[in-house]
Design a protein around this nucleic acid. Structure first.
Lengths: 196, 196
DNA sequence: CCCGTTTTTCTCCATGTGTAGACGAAAGGG
DNA sequence: CCCTTTCGTCTACACATGGAGAAAAACGGG
């Protein structure tokens, strides 16, 4: 029997360095040769794991989403209502270094999703998942009394989703370093207002 | 004396078809040959108007921003406070066809701005302008009593900016046609809440 | 009608890209 | 110890892109 290589782990490794390169140098500079160079491999080696670049980029993006979501789920353990919502927002917003890297990947992803139906589908699913989770958290908050705004939950979900996505743009493309605390203040005051 | 061609108008014409192509086919498919083909020109003709592609793309983006802003200023004539804010949001959000086209240009712009300092500067200026204008509108609303929320104006400005940018993403990449009215409801309920 | 200037066209080239395929290397089982 | 299977490397290639430059055309004035 031949070489034994953990195919799954290798794929993950390649995808990880791919999105890291995207975050660092931009997606245009992330060519297949740049990826294999960063991995210390030759350019043809990717072929055994990804048929073409589209597949590679797609799984790289999916991996970023998965990372974000599992991180959220971990930090969300045991929390409900407004407290859960606060953690959710903090974890998605580019307040830390990890989240800023993720933001630098999401913007190119959006651009590519405009022209690739598969990527758009991935994004749509991610947003559907977030919508569902936010709705559940809001319902919890209503029940336990931590959320008392007269605004309908559906509108709140859209507001939150839009704010979180927009915050990514403002954080990564804003030159001001104030954005760090400004964004914290922004989301905090919004959340405070939900409890009246 | 030689040919007399309105240099300014020609530049504008080229920039316009450029961002229209970007909106329709995506920015990757918008090559210089695609642009000249759409214009009925040869590929070398652009050289007299733009030194390279970066300059072309940059002015195309700037033109989109200028279009949006002048449209806003026109519709904003005579309005103050909450009414002005409502119009501002409606005009920026991709509720109409024109605004959706603009959104399809903004997403690629963000991606490019990540790697191009000049483009980032353009975006920063646009956001600075919007921030200033929003602050003024909010101050007006406070004075005339149409805005009575206890949340600080600075936080409101950031919330609005983030929501407007995020709405662009959700509108263009969301498969649901519900987003049209959903987004209207979202922004309306947010604005209603500002007046208590 | 001719001429000088500008604009436009056309051809060409260097470069970088994704991808394919042949060859060598490694590794574990018989 | 060998051999089959997989993995990795290297070279090559077709192709598109941005850009440069010479030739031709268009245009307005003398």
């Amino acid at each position: 029997m031949p070489k034994k290589v953990d195919h799954q782990q290798r794929r993950a490794e390649i995808a990880d360095t791919t999105w890291r390169l995207i975050a660092e140098r931009g997606i245009d500079a992330t060519t297949m040769r740049a990826i294999t160079d960063a991995l210390g491999m030759a350019n043809g080696a990717l072929k055994h794991y990804f048929p073409d670049k589209n597949a590679l980029v797609k799984t790289a993006f999916v991996r970023v989403f998965d990372n974000t979501n599992t991180r959220i789920q971990q930090r969300l353990a045991g929390l409900t209502g407004l407290a859960a919502l606060r953690v959710f927002c903090q974890e998605v917003m580019p307040a830390e270094d990890v989240t800023e890297l993720e933001a630098r990947v999401v913007l190119p992803f959006w651009q590519r999703a405009l022209a690739d139906a598969q990527l758009e589908e991935v994004w749509a699913e991610a947003m559907a998942q977030w919508r569902q989770q936010l709705r559940r958290i809001l319902a919890e908050g209503r029940e336990e009394g931590t959320i008392r705004t007269p605004v309908a939950d559906d509108a709140l979900v859209e507001q939150l989703l839009a704010m979180l996505n927009g915050a990514q743009v403002l954080a990564v493309l804003g030159p001001d370093e104030t954005t760090r605390e400004t964004q914290q203040a922004m989301i905090e005051s919004y959340l405070d207002n939900l409890g009246r």
